[in-house]
Simulated scan of single mutants.
Amino acid sequence: MARSLWERRGKARLRAVALIGIDGSGKTTQAHHLAEALTAAGRPATYHRNAGGRRWLGRLAQRLGRPDAERLVGRRGLLAVESLLRWLAIAAALLSCVVTGRTAVMDRYSACQYASIRAHGGQRWERLARAGYWMFPLPQVTFLLAVDPAEAYRRIERRGTDHETMSWLTAADTAYRTLPEFPTFVVVDAGRPPEEVARQIQDHLAAWLPAEQPAPAGQPAVGDPVPAGEPAPGGLVRGDAADRGAGRRLAAQARP
């Protein structure tokens, strides 16, 4: 049912993009940037955070005097809660995409659950999870944000909102790379500055954006240089701020 509804929307439209990777790889930051850039380019998009509740359970565990979520609910309990919460989040995101016609930018997807299960050593649970998630269509593009576990650990410690061990991050990194879906992922070097990561992601999606159209006589063509401070085609204003570069790159592909 979900597949037929999805396919009825048409195969040419960019329906969903997923960003996956270990904690600290920058998924949430890049997913927000991508949703904003696609919308600015004429492809209305919505950010969806398909979390499994592991971070929330970890905080609850610490408040209750337990070191982590697994010690609170057990390995089986953690995998069951993660799988259920992520399933519900993805289902809601896909339904929203079908109803609104907007592109769904997924911060985590089913592959994240499979990787989490593998990192916990629960291969039998992975088979059950795949049976439960089979109805979800694959995103047209899945970006794996690859970062060295040591760098991911430093980022997590800097943000100070949660904690992960090096052993877990290393196991999760290995899990992603051993998934059968790995050859279909677009691997992005997430160890580089965020603006460079965003540029690589958006450049890869350029083919999904509307074709460039000739500009009316007397107006600059889309993509032509525009003086700073003056409106560019599509209503954008060219400036020097780095955080607006992503929107301009994608907007240059949109119809004026």
Rank of each mutant, 00 (worst) to 15 (best):
197 V>T: 13
44 P>G: 06
134 W>Q: 15
217 A>C: 11
29 T>I: 07
152 A>G: 12
226 V>H: 09
245 G>P: 06
161 T>L: 01
188 V>H: 12
199 R>C: 07
137 P>R: 03
192 R>F: 02
174 T>H: 01
206 A>L: 05
143 F>I: 00
220 P>R: 05
130 R>M: 14
44 P>E: 06
193 P>C: 07
73 V>Q: 05
237 V>K: 11
146 A>Y: 08
144 L>Y: 07
235 G>T: 08
102 R>Y: 06
111 A>K: 11
75 R>G: 15
80 A>V: 01
128 L>D: 11
231 P>M: 03
32 H>M: 14
88 L>E: 15
228 A>P: 10
213 Q>G: 01
249 R>V: 07
153 Y>E: 13
55 R>G: 00
25 S>N: 04
13 R>V: 01
29 T>F: 09
31 A>C: 05
191 G>L: 07
197 V>A: 10
5 L>Q: 09
65 G>Y: 07
95 L>S: 14
152 A>Y: 12
119 A>P: 11
73 V>G: 04
127 R>V: 11
62 Q>K: 15
256 P>L: 00
252 A>T: 12
237 V>W: 03
79 L>Y: 02
48 H>G: 04
48 H>R: 15
27 K>E: 00
30 Q>G: 12
90 I>V: 14
195 E>N: 12
147 V>R: 15
181 E>D: 09
153 Y>F: 13
12 A>F: 08
32 H>K: 15
243 D>M: 12
26 G>I: 01
176 Y>S: 03
93 A>V: 09
210 P>T: 05
179 L>Q: 06
202 Q>Y: 00
90 I>G: 11
241 A>D: 08
169 L>T: 04
243 D>Q: 11
1 M>G: 03
87 W>P: 06
170 T>Q: 04
199 R>W: 10
138 L>Y: 11
59 R>A: 11
190 A>L: 09
256 P>W: 01
209 L>E: 09
90 I>E: 10
134 W>V: 15
69 A>S: 13
240 D>S: 08
238 R>S: 13
89 A>S: 10
215 A>P: 14
238 R>Q: 13
21 G>T: 03
80 A>Y: 00
121 G>E: 11
247 G>W: 10
100 T>M: 08
59 R>L: 10
56 W>D: 12
135 M>E: 12
40 A>T: 09
28 T>R: 02
72 L>C: 04
103 T>K: 10
20 I>P: 06
92 A>D: 14
240 D>R: 12
89 A>M: 06
225 P>K: 06
101 G>E: 08
123 Q>D: 14
256 P>S: 05
205 L>A: 03
222 V>Q: 06
97 C>V: 07
92 A>W: 11
243 D>G: 09
242 A>C: 11
256 P>C: 02
20 I>T: 05
197 V>C: 12
108 R>C: 05
174 T>D: 02
87 W>V: 02
31 A>E: 05
244 R>F: 02
208 W>D: 12
187 V>Y: 01
152 A>I: 10
62 Q>F: 10
182 F>S: 07
69 A>P: 10
145 L>M: 08
129 A>Y: 15
80 A>K: 00
218 G>N: 09
5 L>F: 00
163 H>Y: 08
192 R>L: 04
172 A>S: 09
236 L>W: 04
24 G>V: 00
175 A>D: 01
45 A>L: 02
201 I>Q: 12
145 L>S: 10
